[in-house]
Design a protein around this nucleic acid. Sequence first.
RNA 1: GGAGAGGUGGCCGAGUGGUUGAAGGCGCAGCACUGGAAAUGCUGUAUAGGGGCAACUUUAUCGAGGGUUCGAAUCCCUCCCUCUCCGCCA
Length: 431
Amino acid sequence: MLDQRLLRDDPALISGQLARRGIEIDLTGLQSIAIQERNLQEQRSDLQAEGNRIGKAVGQQIQAGASPDGPEVRDLRDQGNRIKQQVAGLEEEEKVLEARLREQLLTLPNLPDPRVPEGHSEADNVEVSTWGTPRRPTPGETLQEHWQIAERLGLLDSGERSVRIAQSRFVTLLGQGARLERALIAFMLDRHTARGYTEVMPPILVNSASLTGSGQLPKFAEESFKCADDDLWLTPTAEVPITSLHRDEVIPAEKLPLKYVAHTPCFRREAGSYGRDTRGLIRLHQFNKVELYWFCHPEQSQAAHERLTRDAEGVLEALDLPYRRIELCGGDLGFSAARTYDLEVWLAGAGAYREISSCSTCADFQARRSAIRFKEGKKTQLLHTLNGSGLAIGRTMAALLEAGQQGDGSVSLPAALVPYMGGIDRLSSPG
RNA sequence: GGAGAGGUGGCCGAGUGGUUGAAGGCGCAGCACUGGAAAUGCUGUAUAGGGGCAACUUUAUCGAGGGUUCGAAUCCCUCCCUCUCCGCCA
């Protein structure tokens, strides 16, 4: 959520910044609501002060011996009643304005960081760096895509059974496939906790206040699965429960930064992606993800963003997976993000880079929605939140299968994973 | 799901409808005492919003929302949550 003070003082600055996301919006109407609301509040609180004085005077007179039904007291009571009615009227107006203001404010995305490159779409994103050498087929060699390899090796159900169990865009991992998923989760959690992250296993059903706090509601309700009988949703990312881990809290400055890592299943409706990535592990309604999350001091957030991104990149490097770092342009930024690096892993079979992690700083946007502050000396102010995948498990598995495929049909695994696979360094045909 | 108890400041805990943002204690901070510390004493110690350069001032907040009243932590209604016992259950 954006700062109301900024809205009152300089709405043009906000619309100027939002234009960098490709959003054209005139905020003068919203500004005048904010200012009106403020004026009403001022009038009302003055009246209430007057009412409080009268109330006290009544008490004093009665204690001084005046009759509760005497003329002086009755006169004061009448005054009190008049004020009460006026206050009630003002309060009602104020509430209406406040609700309208908040409702609209919640739909406005974060302001892009000044360093974010200009651009309208994915095509304008900027490649920042690359790591490793993408595997290309040698002459005469055909590299398979991960779903072909996985089905051949019996690592996952070809689809029919998962549809029977649930629907399309769900998978069932089997045998070494399930083992590899578990190994990747454990490997990443171990790696990040060794680097100072605190492991958390949060609820993965979250209430609507939590989704609002991190920015998924109210605008993106159609992206999440909702429980019919409760105010609970399947979390689309661990970012949601972790943000709310400290919702409405004031954290002592010396405790910052708080760094968390969580493995959770994630659930997304993927509305509007019909026909895209229908096979394999790339785009599913349910997938596993290890998420990195920082709560930090505003002055540290830029450095924290680099650190968090490096921590995600470190996983790819440890797994020998070539990747590149992309900085998203203004037009491609997510709703809550002020600045985002996407990490794209090389998929050898598909012959393309594919997003495997998105590392964002949200500045104080989520902190304001969620009322997460820190206290430094006497001062309490909003902190900054950052999040990034470290990494998406299914897509990591896809990249590993495609990168490690051998001429004999087996798949070799990177050394780092071997201990997590019970000593196995190769997945081979079940027979 | 059934029965009961309860939700007050960072924590514990008092609070008869009348100047209560709330006694007392703990904790924390500052000062004094000390060679230093402990102990002791004194002072201070919530959040959010408005006005003011500031000192300061004002409004709201005792789980949430309504109501009664000139005035509500205190009375009434609704809801939420927590705890205990029972039932069910991984």
